[in-house]
Nucleic acid binder design. Structure first.
Lengths: 346, 346
DNA sequence: TATTGGCACTCATTAACAGAGAGTGCTAAT
DNA sequence: ATTAGCACTCTCTGTTAATGAGTGCCAATA
């Protein structure tokens, strides 16, 4: 569909624009990328490519700007050729081991936080990390804390150290002792398994011999369901401050788009889900995104492992981002995380 | 120090600027606020007031803009005269009772979140809520969750339902049973009291009969100290998105100032502390703030009560904010919170 | 002595205009 | 198929002029 030369021009224009931030003109292309041809030839090709929706112009005589379609071609070409591993990989490891205070260990939450911070620092874009599909993660412990009256605090600890908690009210008062008994029963069954596996059987088991507590059990179960299923992912992100410095985000509207994206989470959740099940790198460019409002942004997600859990790390940045660098940085971090995982288990 | 008329002019200029956003000229003042005098007279006064540092001009022939000093005079005058209670108070109550899903109750965290959201919605500024001085809050429950090996998850539940958790590593491996025993002992002593009261005695008590666990106890105590003392306040905030819409925040730099203020927290902590001990409304205007970078912002804090705990709610907004409205909204929310408190205990 | 009217002056803002520069599209020549 | 040449378009910058809001100052006034 594209000739060799056309492909070269597309790649050149995208590359030039990523590096310089300026629209690329025919002259620049002949000088820097496709030597031996005259600007006029390139112009003709460019005109064709514009018809094919790879380029656009801000005005009739400006240079060419790549469309999302062109970025897609560019990213695909990057992914095919082998990337040079991120050079500062050694720094990554150090980062992981350098304790952020006195406590050098830390559960999955701390790892995720460090990862996002690292991404922000290295890319100046917004870093994201997510632990997906809570229902699939082994339950470590469940606790009810009696807060007085019929008010109860539910705490769920998942394997890897994710902690969720939520307040709820029981249909009637109950004694702390009964509550403890209930927690013990639930723990006996649920601990070591994941919620999806036990949700069906848990209710009847917990109730055995405590039939008078039916209402309470039901409420408690519903609450756990809320915590683990409705909140399907746990997102960590940072760097919203950083992007304010980027030239691509000098418009308030764009910042707003990103902030609301982070707040909504549901669009991200879709992509994270895809990345997780396919277990492969995902790049979503501009209007390929689900949400209209972030059509000026690109999102990259990569599967990773943290504290024995599946996880996904990624980055949100401008359409015009250095995809090659971003991807190899993410790959470097995933590798560092992997290494850390292995070391832990030995 | 200021004549009656001068005071009137200062108030008029601030008021006019808050309402219109435009610098106030001498003519406007005579037309809208101080009738019966000619613009020339006002000009003379204004010139004097500019020398006294109440006004400044963007250029030699622009209208007058209020300085922080003028805002201070204005705010002081507002605080003296009685405010009309916030009319939409009924809406506030509804808000509190309207459940945000199916669960209508909720611990202090949910209350704080609702409060900040309410502030944002009503003022279009950044809403803040803080639970201060964790060391003073009664401890409800302490838990250790054994995460395998020597890795432990510490969970602390405070009265009102604040939950803190953190991972740490013990100096050597230990059995889950011993860990449970330790937790039980600590709970026996600490539960129902605050950390400041028990920190001294806790260590020796917990150790009695378990001398071989000295290292573990020490680590665990240090970890609790970290959680409760180093993190002296728990801040909730929202609305960073909203302010992007405000005309005062069209400059990226200003947004950045606010975001970093929210992230650092330590400047806010000082003010919250003051507000808490004095138990009174605090307004910090522009360069009265500790931090240089937020000299274009004002912060208002008001003491409040939530779930039996002392709390502080507040708002961060532009220098040019509607102080009167902001304050009465905050007062309205505090009143609604109070009412809710009373209802709970009956 | 406090107030006022009058006037010159300053500065921001806007529009209109011209020239330079970058880049294109088209056409005719190679 | 490629290229050189040229007209054309559009942005960007700087200049100029007109407008208008507002001040500062001074002399007149009550």
């Amino acid at each position: 569909m594209l000739t060799e030369r056309q492909l070269g021009i597309v790649l050149a224009v995208v590359y030039e624009y990523i590096k310089s931030g300026e629209p690329a003109g025919s002259r620049t292309i002949t000088k820097k990328y496709i030597k031996g041809l005259s600007p006029a030839t390139i112009r003709n090709e460019m005109s064709d490519l514009e018809d094919m929706d790879f380029f656009y112009q801000t005005h009739t005589s400006s240079g060419r700007l790549p469309t999302a379609k062109a970025y897609r071609v560019y990213v695909d070409s990057i992914m095919q050729r082998s990337r040079t591993p991120f050079m500062e990989a050694s720094m990554l490891e150090k980062e992981f081991y350098q304790p952020s205070g006195s406590r050098s260990t830390g559960g999955i939450e701390e790892v995720m936080e460090r990862v996002t911070n690292m991404i922000v620092r290295l890319t100046n874009c917004v870093g994201i990390a997510a632990v997906p599909a809570l229902g699939d993660i082994e339950i470590q412990r469940i606790d009810f804390v009696h807060m007085g009256g019929s008010s109860v605090l539910l705490i769920v600890v998942l394997k890897g150290g994710l902690v969720y908690h939520n307040h709820f009210t029981l249909p009637y008062r109950m004694s702390p002792n009964l509550l403890e008994e209930l927690a013990r029963r639930i723990n006996t069954i649920a601990s070591g398994r994941n919620w999806n596996d036990v949700r069906q059987v848990l209710y009847s088991y917990a109730l055995t011999g405590l039939e008078e507590m039916e209402g309470i059990c039901e409420t408690a179960m519903k609450e756990m369901e809320n915590l683990l299923i409705l909140k399907n992912y746990r997102f960590f992100s940072s760097g919203a401050q950083q992007i304010l410095k980027l030239p691509d985000f000098q418009e308030i509207g764009k910042i707003q788009a990103i902030l609301s994206l982070l707040e909504e989470e549901k669009y991200l959740a879709d992509m994270v889900e895809q990345c997780r099940v396919d277990n492969s790198l995902k790049v979503s460019i501009g209007n390929e995104n689900y949400s209209e409002q972030i059509k000026d942004n690109s999102i990259i997600f990569l599967p990773a492992k943290a504290c024995g859990q599946q996880a996904v790390i990624g980055i949100i940045g401008p359409l015009r981002m250095d995809y090659e660098r971003s991807i190899s940085i993410l790959e470097g971090i995933v590798a560092a995380m992997e290494e850390r995982e292995n070391e832990k288990t030995t």
